[in-house]
Amino acid sequence: MLKKLLEFLILWIIWTLLTWSLALPDILAGVVVSAIAVLLFSDLFPAEIGRLLHPRRLFWGLVYLPVFFWQVVKSNFDVAYRVFHPTMPIRPGIVKVRTSLRSEIARTFLANSITLTPGTLTVDCVDDHLYIHWINIISEDPEEETRLIVEKFEKYLRKIFD
């Protein structure tokens, strides 16, 4: 019940920010729409949503943002270099790495972060293993790949989600 209330509040805040008005009809419409959405789709929200509002987790989330943004910018210059280079220096392939994150939402964030960072794209996630398309393979040893791709995010995501 508490979870549903929290979801309702999140949806209603987003509604209010989007309509950007505090007139009574807008607020009432927001309440009705958020209530219908929560009643119908409550199961689709991740179960740990309440735990994420803990101050320590929020702090690590804020620390994670600049790290993530720096990797994204680096990856863009990397791709731009490969695109504009006349001979296109690529050595693509799909590698397999292991993750130690447990919760579903943490793995989702890990996969999305990997997709936006230098030269890597998550293809699939099976049990503990992620299959990753790497545009420029510099090592063929699974341990080395795990260290290069996953660990720089894992240490933050573990503090945020696990």
Partner: peptide
């Protein structure tokens, strides 16, 4: 522009995804 050029130049679907997703998102 870099992302869309990558979409044209790279040889297969996975490389095109790499270039276009990253660059066009940022």
């Amino acid at each position: 522009f870099a992302g869309c050029l990558g979409l044209i130049r790279f040889p297969d679907i996975y490389n095109r995804l790499q270039a276009s997703t990253k660059c066009v998102t940022l």
